[in-house]
């Protein structure tokens, strides 16, 4: 599986990549990545390319990513050069994360949403690597996806 995670400094690009790497590693999968973060704190782009269970390098060829995780909407055109499928969080999801958990755990809440929505990973894999506080926040993220799904299916009925 080939991923690219894109965002600005402080948006959690590194956090997402480390969590995905850890969850995959404890499943016995090989994880490789490459990071471009030179000017991250000065408004520059943080870009992490990742390969899970394949390849010798972490570098993802343009146009070949299975999924681009985009944390900064203004980079959409750039994100598309890596792959057609781009995952973003809706403003509603970000608001929910900010209002549901303390600032420190917002990223794990969003990670929960990501894992539940994309179904690329098992929630269990992440629960094994997170500490208690993060686990709690992660679960809340997962539950939020579940409850909004229930709500939308109710409406359909």
């Amino acid at each position: 599986m080939k991923f690219v995670i894109l965002g600005k400094g402080g948006q959690g690009v590194i956090f997402f990549s480390r969590a995905i790497a850890q969850a995959s590693a404890q499943k016995g999968l090989m994880v490789r990545s490459t990071e471009i973060k030179g000017m991250a704190k000065k408004g520059g782009v943080v870009e992490i390319q990742m390969k899970i269970g394949e390849g010798l390098s972490g570098v993802v060829r343009r146009g070949s990513a299975d999924l681009v995780i985009l944390l900064s909407e203004d980079l959409m055109d750039y994100a598309k050069t890596f792959g057609e499928k781009v995952f973003t969080f809706t403003s509603k999801e970000i608001e929910k994360a900010l209002s549901s958990v303390p600032m420190l755990y917002v990223n794990t809440f969003l990670l929960g949403i990501f894992v539940k929505k994309t179904k690329l990973f098992d929630c269990e894999d992440f629960l094994k690597i997170l500490d208690d506080k993060n686990k709690e926040s992660f679960k809340k993220g997962c539950e939020y996806v579940q409850s909004s799904k229930r709500n939308s299916s109710k409406r359909r009925n």
Partner: peptide
């Protein structure tokens, strides 16, 4: 090189 030094692997 950058890709090795700032790359990661297990």
């Amino acid at each position: 090189t950058t890709r090795i030094s700032h790359g990661r692997a297990l």
